[in-house]
Simulated scan of single mutants.
Amino acid sequence: MINESANIGMPQPKEFYQVPTLDLARALLGCILVKETPEGIASGYIVETEAYIGPGDKAAHSFGNRRTKRTEVMFGEAGLIYTYVMHTHTLVNVVSAEKEKPEAILIRAVEPCHGIPLMQERRGTLDLRKLTSGPGKLTKALGISMADYGHSFTEPPLWITKGKKPEKIVSGPRIGIHNSGEARDYPWRFWVPDNPFVSR
């Protein structure tokens, strides 16, 4: 059950996700990413996203229509949760596009909203700017794990709800994809300018 006392909104409907991937990557900015665990609810305003449009995107896990145990969920319907581990960090993505068209959006950074003390405990720091200013930081702070893989963002325990629409959105090349040919220059990273929680 959603803890209404935490003043958290209801999940965005499936229709919210049924738009082109680049449009969804922008629309996610300002929405609230929420995770409910036995320890409590933690959430944050999404301030940075990256779109991956496989199978023609050399930076995407699904490039070349690559279908593996890890990427299988990307071939599902829009709004599903794609988590994976990179190094020691879990990263969280929103599956986008229609079925059998493997595209996804990485949530790179959020601005802490609810459950800040819980996030500070999980991250081992009181510095708000260090809590969620990166894709691995935010999953640890919110309690997102590989157990969320394949579930839907349209229902608890991990969901996205309406927040505050940013006044301005900027875009630029994605981060950390140097060995992806021309794809490294695609301006498919979107963020809220001047927000201190953007990863870079």
Rank of each mutant, 00 (worst) to 15 (best):
A27S: 11
L28P: 06
G30R: 00
L33F: 13
V34I: 12
K35Y: 13
E36V: 03
E39V: 14
I41M: 08
I41F: 05
I41Q: 06
S43N: 01
G44F: 00
G44Q: 01
I46K: 00
V47S: 00
E48D: 08
T49L: 07
T49S: 13
E50I: 11
A51C: 05
A51H: 03
A51I: 04
A51N: 05
Y52I: 10
I53A: 02
G54E: 10
G54M: 02
P55N: 08
D57M: 05
A59E: 01
F63P: 02
G64S: 00
R66Y: 06
R66N: 05
T68M: 15
T68N: 05
K69D: 14
R70L: 13
T71F: 01
T71M: 05
T71Q: 04
E72C: 06
V73Q: 10
V73R: 13
M74E: 06
G76A: 01
A78Y: 04
L80W: 00
I81K: 01
Y84W: 02
M86I: 13
M86V: 15
M86A: 09
H87A: 09
H87V: 07
H89W: 14
T90A: 15
T90I: 15
L91F: 15
V92D: 03
V92I: 15
N93E: 08
N93K: 10
N93D: 09
V94K: 03
V94Y: 01
V95N: 07
V95A: 09
A97S: 14
E98K: 15
E100C: 09
E100T: 09
P102L: 03
A104K: 05
A104G: 12
A104W: 07
I105W: 11
I105Y: 15
I107Q: 08
I107F: 11
R108F: 14
A109E: 08
A109C: 10
C113H: 15
H114D: 04
G115W: 01
I116R: 03
I116E: 02
I116Q: 01
P117L: 02
P117E: 06
L118D: 01
M119P: 04
Q120T: 10
Q120E: 13
R122S: 10
R123A: 06
G124T: 11
T125E: 09
L126S: 14
D127M: 04
R129P: 04
T132G: 03
T132S: 05
T132F: 05
G134H: 06
G134C: 02
P135G: 10
P135N: 12
G136C: 07
G136I: 13
G136K: 10
G136P: 06
K137L: 15
L138T: 05
K140Y: 12
A141G: 09
A141M: 13
L142E: 10
L142V: 03
L142S: 08
G143D: 04
G143A: 12
G143R: 08
S145M: 04
S145I: 10
S145F: 01
S145H: 09
M146E: 09
M146W: 11
